[in-house]
Design a protein around this nucleic acid. Structure first.
Lengths: 114, 114
DNA sequence: TATTTGCGCAACCACATTGTTGCGTATATA
DNA sequence: TATATACGCAACAATGTGGTTGCGCAAATA
């Protein structure tokens, strides 16, 4: 009723790595493709819990499914990980230029020369 | 007692950057310290919404507060950002060695009959 | 002093997240 | 064929997230 800015469900790399279990899964899959059961054996989590995390990872396009008989192998799409790197690079660029930008900001905010 | 593994509230850098508004705030603060009002002016969000994000960022230790009169200046703790980089480095290391590790993993996992 | 301004805090709401159990189905195997 | 296994999916519960409005207080200002 009263308000609530409709927020879309976020499905990006940052959402993918927000959960520690998912980060661990990513590391596991970086080594090689695995089935949900194999992954679950590495954690305290149940198979179903892992399965849910995998679903999120698939939705975030960090992980791909490959059916093999009755098993499903999940493997990492490591390309997606580069988006984090890209973001970090941008951030570092801003940090490097922050004094220049700060000047611009101050100039913009105050109409006087120093 | 219908179950639910008590999960602690996650307050780390990955939680901090999970939200797009918070990522934008981080970029803003990378340029220079700002007040909540000044930050809010850059978004559609209200001051209170921004304030909540700032609270999360403070809890994640990505941002520090500095009271100046009745204004509070928030500035970035860019050190915290390096944790993302560290994690990425680890990941890349795993990716580089994955073929070696794959052998180890397969040996470990398939010591069942096969 | 009286008023405005900056901002945190609490209450509230809708929805997302993270886990659980149970079930259905397809595949492998005895 | 009968049974066990791998897995997704649905239903449910507890808690977190992200937003809102309204209030109160301290600091600045008229």
């Amino acid at each position: 009723m009263v308000a609530n800015k409709s927020k879309p469900i976020r499905r990006d790399i940052f959402q993918a790595i927000a959960d520690p279990t998912r980060r661990a899964i990513i590391f596991l899959l970086a080594v090689g493709a695995m089935t949900p059961n194999a992954i679950a054996e590495h954690f305290n989590s149940s198979r179903q819990a892992v399965s849910k995390h995998l679903k999120v990872l698939v939705e975030c396009e960090v992980v791909n499914q490959e059916q093999q008989g009755r098993e499903i192998h999940y493997h990492l799409n490591s390309e997606k990980m580069k988006e984090i790197e890209k973001w970090l690079e941008q951030f570092k660029k801003v940090m490097e230029n922050r004094f220049n930008n700060l000047d611009q900001y101050l100039a913009k905010l105050k109409n006087q020369k120093s």
